[in-house]
Structures are given as structure tokens and as C-alpha cells.
Amino acid sequence: MKGGIHLKPALLMVGLYIFFKFGMPLFTAPLPASLIMLYLMLTFSGIMIFMTLSGTSMESFLGPIFRFISGDGQDGTMKMARLAVLALFPLLVGWQTYTSTASSTAPPAENRTVHPAPPGEFAAMSNPVPNTPENVMQGKGLYAAYCSPCHGLFDGKGPASRGFNPPPANFKDPTTIAMLQESYLFWRIKKGGVGLSVEGMPWKSAMPRWEFELKDEQIWKIIMGEYDGAGQKPRTWE
């Protein structure tokens, strides 16, 4: 097959790129772009070594490429293609240089930890209020009065939520209270956004520090009402 000598290595490179970029993430974490680049460079080196092992294989592999670049005996489409490649290469290099040296107009990226570790005194707490229908109902009443303006119907979309960044937590989302213990919620409600550690960016949180307005018992009831209303179960040590 004519051109097969170039087609196979090209297909190998493209195939490997697709595998590293899209295939690998199916089994493991996505590979960094620099690692994919390194793998492709190794593959390319391998292809070059293989193709230049003998004089004949080198001539059949590199010959057509060299003739295309030097423009020997070309006319028509090939001539145009060569000129296009020769013109595009410097422009591409120029563009790459421009984008990598131009100053950014984007604000700094924020890397906020959504659930930073609670202080030690909260980690081992357990809910002292019995989980009775009456207590759950009282908790839901307190939730409606104190929490629902922002957290809404347990979905984080209350009428006061729209201006806040980070947005109020959505308790129906399986990555919020379902993966946290009751003691974690107790800490977050009692100490509020300002109680977060530095990686939680406390200066941005609008969560009130409820210890000034609610008794501990009321907070525990709210937690029970919250889990019940959101249809979630607290995480336990098992």
C-alpha cells in the first residue's frame, strides 16, 4: 500500500494520543498533558530509531518527506500543499509564542476546599438528641425559619441564595451532607462560614455563625430535620 510507511506511524501516534487522553481516564485519573506529551515523544523517538535502522528503510521513510519539503519536481496540488505547510509552520510557532508570553486578563483561579477538616473538638461528637418524629418535625420547623431563605427546599436554591459565591449547599446533592457526619454539620452550623480553615476561604462564606442565636439542642434538631427533608442519611464510622 502506497503511503503505508507513513500511515502506520501516524495512526500509531494518533491512536496512542486518543488512548492516553480519553481511554486512560476510564481506568484511572486523567493523565497530565505533560505526561501525554512525554509518552508521545518516546513513541516518536522509537519510530525514528526503527525507521532509520537500515539505509533502505531510512530512504523509504524519510525520502518522500524530504522531497516534499525541498519541493523537487512538484506541481499542482503538491506545490500548493508544500507552500501552505511552509507558510503555516512559522505562523503557528508565532501564535504559540504569542499565547505563551501574552499577559493574562483572567482573575486568579480559586482553589477552594469545599469540606475542610473540622477542628478536633467537633470530630468525635455524636447527636445527643433522640431521633424521634417529634424532634425531626421541630428540626424541620427551625430549618424553615433559619435555613430555608438560602438553602431553600434542601436544594440550596432559596430566595436569598442568588448573590452568594460560594452558593449555599444543596443537601440533596449526594456529595454534601450524605458524605458527612452529623458532627461535621454541627460544626458548620454552630461556627458558620467564618469558622472555616484557610483552605475553605472563610472570607467568602455567607453562612451565619448560629451559636449566637441558636442553642446546641436546636442545631442538632435542625440537622435531623435536614437529613430527613433531603432524603439523606448521615455518614457513620462503620
Binding site: P119, V194, M201, P202
Partner: peptide, 14 residues
């Protein structure tokens, strides 16, 4: 230093 958006109120750990 970072300041809380609500009037720079004191923060617990920061």
C-alpha cells in the same frame, strides 16, 4: 490579609 466580605468581621481560624 484577607477580610470577610461582611464588614471584615473576625474569622475563627484565619
Amino acid at each position: 490579609k484577607k477580610a470577610h466580605f461582611a464588614h471584615g468581621q473576625p474569622m475563627g481560624q484565619v
